[in-house]
Nucleic acid binder design. Structure first.
Length: 278
DNA sequence: AACTGTCCCTGCAAGC
DNA sequence: TGCTTGCAGGGACAGT
């Protein structure tokens, strides 16, 4: 599922292939993916504009336009942004088509339609996209200080896993990478945040950076459902490096002694090694 | 503050 | 074979 590394991989593709392109014409199929505003607002906001940059905060793609507006794309569970030659046969669930001035089309494809595309005035981000305005620090795109992270950890007794998943605290970590990060940091997902000493806090801070960077270098994770692919339709390879996610019942690859356990809380699965994560 | 459960949606896999 | 059921999960939200 698209988390920070997958969204960053898409962002890099957009930076290389969409920035500088003019959007000549826009088609919107299912109105659900533009529910934040409307079909007419998206078409009016995009048509005739040129994409001037490709940014990202957490899992949100933010693309400034030469009109002064910005386009936001969120992939949620199953969204894809694809760049294809004009006239290519549409995939099922192709909900937004942007016809570009270079003979390509940019598609937003999303079977589950949890994802969305929005054009908004950045000065009104708090009204249109309040959750974007309240995002926490992006550990890759922004300065992610150990001191500040330690302050956050000390401030709450929440368990580490839900804390890592809270986009208002740190932006971009989802279920897969939260499990992989906690495994690398050798910390149990249910450890209260304020129980970490300085060394454990540093391990967690390091693991956030190293796991996310390695996953970006691998082009993200593409699971067996192939739900995530990059702009050109290629999958990532970081799924081969998962040490706990999707490995319930297997022997721990790290310590060789524990068996990977899977628990469910808040309707989401958690994977960890009860031996080497404490 | 912090927890749980529900909803949105589709595709796929397991079970009968 | 063909049905039903469950599961996957990002994020908002309601309820406790």
């Amino acid at each position: 599922m698209p988390e920070l590394p997958e969204v960053e991989t898409v962002r890099r593709g957009l930076d290389a292939r969409l920035v500088g392109r003019r959007i000549d014409r826009v088609e919107v199929g299912r109105e659900r993916v533009v529910r934040r505003t409307s079909r007419d607002e998206l078409i009016a906001g995009l048509t005739g504009t040129t994409v001037t940059a490709a940014g990202r905060r957490g899992k949100y793609l933010l693309l400034p336009l030469d009109s002064g507006d910005e386009m936001m794309i969120h992939l949620r569970m199953s969204g894809q942004v694809l760049l294809v030659p004009a006239g290519a046969e549409r995939l099922p669930h192709t909900h937004v088509v942007m016809h570009l001035d270079d003979g390509n089309e940019a598609w937003f494809v999303d079977p589950r339609t949890f994802g969305e595309v929005v054009v908004f005035d950045p000065e009104r981000v708090g009204e249109v996209l309040p959750e974007v305005a309240r995002l926490g620090v992006d550990p890759i795109a922004e300065r992610f200080e150990l001191r500040e992270f330690r302050r956050i950890l000390r401030s709450t007794r929440r368990a580490l896993k839900p804390l890592l998943l809270d986009q208002h605290v740190i932006a971009g970590i989802g279920n897969i990478y939260a499990d992989e990060i906690l495994h690398r940091a050798r910390l149990r997902p249910d450890r209260p945040a304020n129980s970490l000493d300085a060394r454990a806090s540093r391990r967690l801070h390091d693991a956030i950076g190293s796991v996310l960077r390695e996953a970006i270098a691998a082009g993200g994770s593409t699971l067996s459902d192939a739900q995530y692919v990059d702009l050109m339709g290629d999958g990532g390879s970081y799924q081969d490096d998962h040490r706990v996610y999707g490995r319930a019942g297997e022997r721990c690859l790290t310590c060789g002694r524990g068996w990977i356990r899977r628990t469910v809380s808040g309707g989401r699965s958690t994977h960890f090694c009860p031996v080497c994560q404490r």
